[in-house]
């Protein structure tokens, strides 16, 4: 019967233009009209997550080579279909993830495989793929600064516009109207060296 599922108005990696996302047995694809097609073979897919995002609901795929692939703009109703496709065709469980909305600025940073997340009461407030970080440094005694890679010119796409303004890796935030350039954290107990994050789990509840 259905050999393909198709979704309109989907944004790839913060692209300015929306395109059509297709799920087929062989993998997934995304294309803006008149543009080139981005494809992800099913063998590439490691895991998948479903959350609310800016344009609608986001399907985030962690891929072997492509890293963090973000597809935003799905409707809540699409979840069942997508979950089924991923399970049957790709053998991957689509996991629903709720994000923190309480507006707090304290929590705990967690280092994942492809991204780092800042969790507030065990819910991620946001995630940052490692590909988007250009530099980090110890800016003060207890302060860590994280800088983001951005296109030199705010208009540059990094993909010659072929992917509807979706950025190549390391340029994602360039697709936003307001582009995040730097983030600073207060990290307690960094007087000697940082990196002993494993020691202090679950302290804040």
């Amino acid at each position: 019967q259905n050999i393909m599922e198709s979704f309109d108005d989907i944004y790839l990696d913060l692209s300015k233009q929306s395109g059509k996302c297709r799920l087929a047995e062989s993998g997934l694809g995304w294309k803006v009209s008149g543009g080139q097609t981005f494809t992800l073979d099913k063998a590439e897919i490691i895991s998948a997550q479903w959350s609310r995002a800016a344009r609608g609901h986001e399907l985030k795929v962690i891929a072997r080579n492509a890293g963090v692939v973000q597809l935003d703009g799905f409707r809540q109703d699409d979840f069942d279909t997508i979950q089924k496709c991923f399970k049957v065709w790709y053998g991957v469980e689509l996991i629903q993830k709720e994000h923190a909305l309480n507006g707090w600025n304290w929590g705990k940073s967690e280092m994942g495989r492809n991204e780092f997340s800042f969790a507030v009461r065990n819910r991620p407030a946001f995630e940052i793929p490692y590909t988007e970080i250009s530099n980090t440094n110890l800016a003060g005694k207890n302060e860590v600064a994280v800088e983001f890679s951005l296109p030199a010119d705010g208009e540059e796409t990094g993909t010659n516009g072929h992917l509807g303004g979706a950025r190549s890796k390391g340029r994602k935030t360039g697709g936003a109207t307001d582009q995040l350039t730097e983030m600073r954290f207060y990290i307690p107990g960094t007087e000697t060296r940082k990196g002993k994050k494993k020691d202090d789990e679950d302290g804040e509840d």
Partner: peptide, 14 residues
């Protein structure tokens, strides 16, 4: 809280 990390600043460009 000795384990709480804080976001100290966020900078955006436009």
């Amino acid at each position: 809280d000795p384990s709480a990390q804080f976001i100290r600043s966020l900078t955006f460009r436009s």
